[in-house]
């Protein structure tokens, strides 16, 4: 099975601050990968490098088999990206946003229309389609952003805190959808601060100060550290690391 994402010693420096420090990992095709970490650990920065938005300082990486330095154009054709920050057009309606992004991916009119119908059904967006995206409550915006990023059925989906600010009911529905996507072969690369969501992932990595400090299957890790759940594991790991770095 080819790997959807491979990263080798990927590094990003802003001035003399190292935001991402030599991280390496691979994500298999169809895998649901949880990219966890403390605030400011460098998750968004790493994802931005993978999506071709930021040039790495050093290291290598491929997405969908394409090199992140040379094959940016091909990468963009195979990925979907849902940013942590709201990044839709607030002065356009939800429908116009969807329509615009669908067109950018060159979906045929008919296909696009069906796809929008389908997604708004699944996400319960129907009644919001004609409202301006900027006026939607936060949780609804997240749904719209998700719909936008999967319109073109990308092979690899990068989701940066997709459920931030979303209510529990929808969070479950959302993960149901993600699993359906994964079942259809989509690779998911997800960051989240909800540890119960992280338990849904096939594998997770935990980042701290630019480094990956742990990587593996959630239940294996829970066992390894003898913790009741991921949340406790995360808190313990990160607190320990923070103390260590404070000592230095």
């Amino acid at each position: 099975m080819p790997d959807a994402v491979t990263i080798e010693k990927l590094t990003k420096k802003f001035g003399d601050f190292t935001a991402v420090d030599q991280i390496s990992l691979t994500v298999g095709e169809g895998e649901v990968f949880g990219f966890l970490g403390a605030n400011g650990a460098g998750k968004t920065t790493a994802i931005r490098m993978l999506c071709g938005l930021l040039l790495p300082t050093s290291g290598n990486g491929t997405v969908g088999g394409f090199d992140i330095y040379r094959d940016n154009e091909n990468i963009k054709k195979s990925i979907g990206y849902m940013s942590q920050k709201f990044s839709l057009y607030g002065d356009l309606t939800a429908y116009e946003n969807l329509w615009f992004y669908g067109s950018v991916y060159q979906l045929k009119k008919k296909v696009l229309k069906d796809r929008i119908d389908e997604l708004s059904e699944e996400l319960g967006l129907h009644e919001f389609l004609n409202r301006l995206a900027g006026n939607l409550p936060l949780g609804w915006r997240q749904r719209l952003a998700l719909a936008t990023s999967v319109l073109h059925r990308p092979k690899i989906l990068f989701l940066d805190e997709p459920t931030g600010g979303v209510d529990p009911v929808f969070r479950r529905r959302f993960w149901g959808m993600l699993y359906d996507l994964a079942d259809k072969g989509t690779t998911l690369f997800v960051t989240t601060h909800y540890m119960d969501e992280a338990e849904y992932c096939h594998r997770i990595s935990i980042m701290h100060h630019g480094r990956i400090i742990e990587l593996g299957n959630p239940s294996d890790l829970i066992q390894k550290y003898q913790q009741p759940n991921l949340e406790e594991l995360f808190v313990q790991l990160i607190s320990k690391k923070s103390e260590e770095s404070a000592d230095v």
């Binding site: 970490g37 403390a38 605030n39 942590q84 936060l138 805190e161 931030g164 600010g165 601060h193 540890m195 949340e231 995360f234 808190v235 990160i238 607190s239 923070s242």
Partner: peptide
Amino acid sequence: DEPTTGVDPVSRR
């Protein structure tokens, strides 16, 4: 109003 959205578990505590 939703002060902990996007805040990691350690900081949340």
